[in-house]
């Protein structure tokens, strides 16, 4: 069956050089050995995120001490980008205030949508910058953003609850 052109195709190698920018070593490392998986016994913030398009799921829990992220955990199911991004997030927000964590999300989101220069990002984002290659694969951007959008949900929910507590006081 149609030999000629096929032989050329069959000898094609699979070096995947092109995807190395997407699947950087740091990402694969976080995917293979996700950090901070231990469920927290008690948490101040918790939110669940889902991407129905591909079935990625993530739950994030945060424990605050003196207004700083003291412990953080995630549990999830999904592609390497969504899960590595969640793992990187948990490391990245430890020791930060919620405002700082939220600012990091905004910066990361801007990077994913191509709204910031990579020089700025390298300084500000730390390990999160490893996800920069994802923006060249637009269909995967929402995989990378899932955990972060979930963090944002958790922060907003926490702020609403705090506001309610204040206004409930006599």
């Amino acid at each position: 069956m149609c030999a000629g052109w096929v032989i050329i195709m069959s000898t094609q190698g699979f070096d995947f050089a092109d995807v190395d920018d997407l699947y950087r070593e740091i990402i694969l490392d976080h995917y293979r050995s996700p950090r901070n998986q231990e469920k927290l016994a008690e948490s101040d913030l918790e939110a669940e995120g889902m991407n129905p398009f591909c079935g990625d799921e993530v739950v994030i829990q945060i424990k605050l001490v003196d207004g700083l992220v003291d412990a953080v955990s995630f549990k999830g199911n999904g592609c390497s980008i969504s899960q590595a991004s969640a793992s990187i997030l948990t490391d990245a927000i430890k020791g930060k205030t919620l405002d700082e964590a939220e600012a990091l999300y905004f910066r990361f989101r801007d990077m994913m949508y191509g709204k910031s220069s990579s020089d700025d990002d390298a300084d500000q984002l730390g390990e999160v910058e490893a996800l920069a290659g994802v923006k060249r694969f637009p269909i995967r951007v929402k995989c990378a953003l899932l955990a972060w959008a979930t963090l944002e949900d958790a922060i907003k929910k926490h702020a609403r609850e705090a506001e309610k507590k204040t206004s409930d006081k006599p």
Binding site: F16, V19, L22, Y23, I81, F137, I139
Partner: peptide
Amino acid sequence: HPHDIGTMLDRE
């Protein structure tokens, strides 16, 4: 994950 397989095959 299927999504990762899809991206890898796409690039080929």
